[in-house]
Amino acid sequence: MSEIENRQRIPEPHEGLIIAFTGSPGVGKSCLIDRLIYQWSTTKTIAVLAVDPTSPLSGGALLGDRIRMTVLDEPELGKQVYFRSVATRESSGSVPSIVGDLASHLFSEGFDMVVVETVGAGQSEMRCAALANKIIVVEGPSRGDIIQAEKAGLLELADLVVVNKSDLPGASKVAHEIQSSLSLADDAPNIVLVSAQTGEGIEELAVEILSTKSSIKTNRARIRERVLMWHENKLLHRENFDHVIEQISSGEMSFEEGLGALND
Score class of each variant (00 low, 15 high):
Thr43Pro: 06
Tyr38Cys: 05
Lys217Thr: 14
Ile10Val: 12
Gly260Ser: 14
Gly140Ile: 09
Leu72Asp: 04
Glu257Asp: 13
Leu154His: 03
Gly120His: 01
Leu49Asp: 02
Tyr82Cys: 07
Ala206His: 08
Ile98Asn: 05
Leu157Asp: 06
Asp167Cys: 02
Val162Thr: 09
Gly170Gln: 03
Pro169Ile: 01
Glu252Phe: 04
Ala20Phe: 02
Ile216Thr: 15
Ile178Gln: 03
Val48His: 02
His105Gln: 13
Ile202Cys: 06
Asn219Phe: 13
Asn233Trp: 03
His237Leu: 14
Gly199Asp: 07
Ala175Trp: 00
Trp230Phe: 15
Ala130Gln: 04
Thr45Val: 08
Leu49Ile: 11
Arg224Thr: 12
Val244Arg: 01
His105Phe: 12
Ala261Ser: 09
Leu63Val: 04
Gly64Gln: 08
Phe255Lys: 13
Asn164Lys: 00
Trp230Ala: 15
Leu182Thr: 03
Leu228Ile: 14
Leu36Glu: 10
Ile4Gly: 06
Glu76Val: 14
Glu203Tyr: 04
Glu74Ile: 15
Arg127Tyr: 07
Ile135Pro: 01
Ser180Cys: 02
Arg9Ser: 12
Ala158Ile: 03
Gly122Met: 04
Glu232Met: 10
Thr218Ser: 12
Ser124Gln: 11
Met113Leu: 13
Val244Ala: 10
Asp73Asn: 15
Gly100Cys: 05
Lys165His: 06
Val174Met: 06
Ala206Val: 07
Phe111Leu: 12
Arg238Trp: 07
Gly59Lys: 04
Gly258Ala: 06
Ser183Pro: 01
Ile146Asp: 09
Arg7Val: 04
Ile98Cys: 11
Gly60Lys: 14
Glu203Cys: 07
Ala152Glu: 10
Pro141Asp: 07
Ala130Ile: 08
Gly93Ser: 13
Leu32Glu: 06
Ile202Trp: 00
Glu117Tyr: 11
Glu156Ser: 09
Lys151Ser: 13
Val86Ile: 13
Gly170Tyr: 04
Ile98Trp: 00
Tyr82Gln: 07
Ile209Met: 05
Ala221Val: 06
Glu12Ile: 05
Ser211His: 12
Lys29Cys: 03
Pro96Ala: 13
Gly258Thr: 06
His231Glu: 15
Cys31Asp: 14
Asp52Tyr: 00
Glu256Tyr: 05
Ser104Glu: 05
Asn263Ala: 14
Met126Asp: 09
Ile191Asn: 01
Asp264Pro: 10
Ser211Phe: 10
Thr198Gly: 08
Ser24Glu: 02
Met69Cys: 13
Glu74Trp: 11
Val207Tyr: 07
Val163Gly: 02
Glu12Asn: 14
Ile67Tyr: 10
Thr42His: 15
Leu262Lys: 09
Val137Asp: 04
Gly23Ala: 09
Ser58Glu: 09
His176Asn: 15
Asp34Ile: 13
Glu225Ala: 08
Arg226Lys: 14
Glu3Leu: 11
Lys213Ile: 10
Glu150Gly: 06
Ile135Glu: 03
Phe241Leu: 08
Gln247Met: 13
Val71Cys: 12
Ser2Thr: 14
Ser108Leu: 11
Asp242Glu: 14
Ser180Tyr: 04
Leu262Thr: 09
Thr54Val: 02
Lys213Thr: 12
Ile37Gln: 03
Leu168Thr: 01
Gly201Val: 01
His105Cys: 05
His243Phe: 14
Ala185Met: 12
Val137Ala: 05
Gly122Phe: 10
Glu204Ile: 05
Ser92Glu: 08
Cys128Leu: 09
Glu200Tyr: 09
Gly100His: 06
Leu63Asn: 08
Leu154Gly: 00
Glu3Phe: 09
Asp65Phe: 06
Arg89Val: 05
Lys29Asp: 10
Val138Tyr: 01
Ser183Ile: 02
